[in-house]
């Protein structure tokens, strides 16, 4: 699984990155977590309100810092597409 955090490096993006790492650890899912800080690259995802969460090149959340529960749900949903 390939996860990217979109954001220019504000507090919210750092928080989202931490929550994502924690969620992955709790779920025991192996994933690479990258950061996209370049504005033009962020815009290339069509995201205008940061932070944004991208799982396998799909924007699953943007505009706010999601709760840890929601991040776990999003990761689980992406890991089991049929569920």
């Amino acid at each position: 699984m390939d996860i990217k955090i979109l954001g220019p490096g504000c507090t919210n993006c750092v928080t989202l990155e931490r929550i994502t790492h924690e969620a992955l650890a709790q779920l025991g899912i192996d994933a690479t977590v990258g950061k996209v800080t370049d504005i033009q690259d962020i815009m290339a995802y069509g995201v205008m309100s940061t932070p944004g969460l991208v799982i396998d090149d799909v924007v699953v959340f943007s505009g706010r810092v999601p709760t840890p529960t929601r991040v776990r749900e999003l990761i689980t949903a992406a890991a089991n597409p049929s569920a």
Binding site: A44, Y45, G46, V59, G63
Partner: peptide, 9 residues
């Protein structure tokens, strides 16, 4: 250029 599908939260 704005790419991807614009996600409206």
């Amino acid at each position: 250029r704005i790419g991807g599908q614009i996600v409206d939260p």
